Deep mutational scan, measured.
Amino acid sequence: KRPMNAFMVWAKDERRKILQAFPDMHNSNISKILGSRWKSMSNQEKQPYYEEQARLSKIHLEKYPNYK
């Protein structure tokens, strides 16, 4: 399994927050909201998630050096 990208790292927690506020919301609607919110974020706001992506990718590479 591939490591999560920056959007997926961010969306994991955000999806949970949306589901708590709107438990009956369909997954497709949540995904649209998440995509819209991510697009509206500045690069500075996204930076911690890109850093986490890099950390996860490094761990993945160490654990699975032959993964293609």
Rank of each mutant, 00 (worst) to 15 (best):
I30Q: 00
M4P: 12
P65M: 10
Y64D: 15
L34G: 01
K46I: 01
A11I: 05
L19R: 13
K32I: 06
Q47M: 10
F7D: 00
Q47R: 07
Y67M: 13
N29W: 11
S57M: 12
A54C: 05
S42Y: 03
S40K: 06
P23I: 00
A21V: 06
F7V: 01
P3A: 06
L19T: 10
H26N: 15
I59V: 14
L19N: 07
K17G: 03
H26K: 14
K68T: 09
K12G: 08
M25F: 03
Q47L: 11
A21E: 15
L61K: 13
Q53R: 06
A11R: 02
F7N: 02
K1H: 08
E14R: 05
E51K: 08
Q20M: 10
I30L: 12
N5G: 07
I18F: 03
I33T: 04
Y49T: 03
K63M: 11
N66E: 13
K1F: 08
R16C: 10
H26G: 15
K46A: 00
A54L: 06
A54P: 03
Y67T: 15
W38T: 00
K1I: 11
Y67C: 13
K39T: 03
N66D: 13
L61H: 13
P23L: 01
W10K: 01
H26M: 13
W38A: 02
Q20N: 12
K12T: 11
K1G: 11
F22M: 08
P3V: 04
K46D: 02
Y50Q: 07
E14G: 02
K1M: 15
K46P: 01
S42M: 04
R15T: 11
Q47T: 05
N5M: 00
P48K: 06
K32G: 06
Y64P: 13
F22P: 05
I18P: 00
R55H: 06
L19V: 11
W38C: 01
S28E: 14
Q53F: 13
E62C: 05
W10E: 00
F22D: 13
S40V: 08
M41F: 02
R55P: 02
M4R: 10
W10R: 02
Y67H: 14
Q47F: 03
E14I: 15
M8S: 14
M25Q: 02
S57T: 13
I18M: 06
M25D: 03
M41V: 02
S36P: 13
P48Q: 07
K32W: 05
K17L: 03
R2W: 04
P48D: 05
D24E: 10
N29F: 13
Q53P: 03
N29A: 13
I30S: 00
P23M: 01
Q20I: 06
P48T: 07
K68Q: 11
W38H: 00
M8Y: 08
S36T: 14
M25V: 04
I18N: 02
L56E: 13
N29V: 14
M25P: 01
E62V: 06
R15M: 12
M41L: 11
A54K: 08
P48M: 07
W10F: 10
I59Q: 11
P3F: 03
A21N: 13
A6W: 01
G35E: 14
K17I: 04
Y50A: 04
H60S: 12
L61M: 14
N29Q: 15
A6V: 02
N5P: 05
N66R: 08
S57I: 06
R55F: 03
P48L: 04
Y64T: 12
M8C: 12
R16T: 14
Q47H: 06
S31R: 09
N27T: 08
K32E: 13
M4S: 11
L34K: 00
E51M: 08
K1S: 13
N43F: 06
R55N: 09
N66P: 11
L61T: 12
K32P: 01
P3Q: 10
I30T: 01
D13K: 09
Y50K: 09
L61N: 14
N29S: 13
R15G: 10
G35D: 15
P65L: 09
L61Q: 14
V9F: 06
D24H: 07
A6S: 04
F7I: 01
Q53W: 11
L61Y: 11
Y64L: 12
S31N: 14
H26A: 13
R2M: 12
H60D: 11
P65N: 13
M4E: 13
L19E: 12
L19F: 05
Y49N: 03
P65H: 10
F7K: 08
M41G: 02
N27R: 09
L19K: 13
H26W: 09
R55W: 02
N5K: 02
E52R: 02
H26R: 12
S31I: 12
R2F: 11
R15F: 12
P48E: 03
N5T: 15
L56G: 08
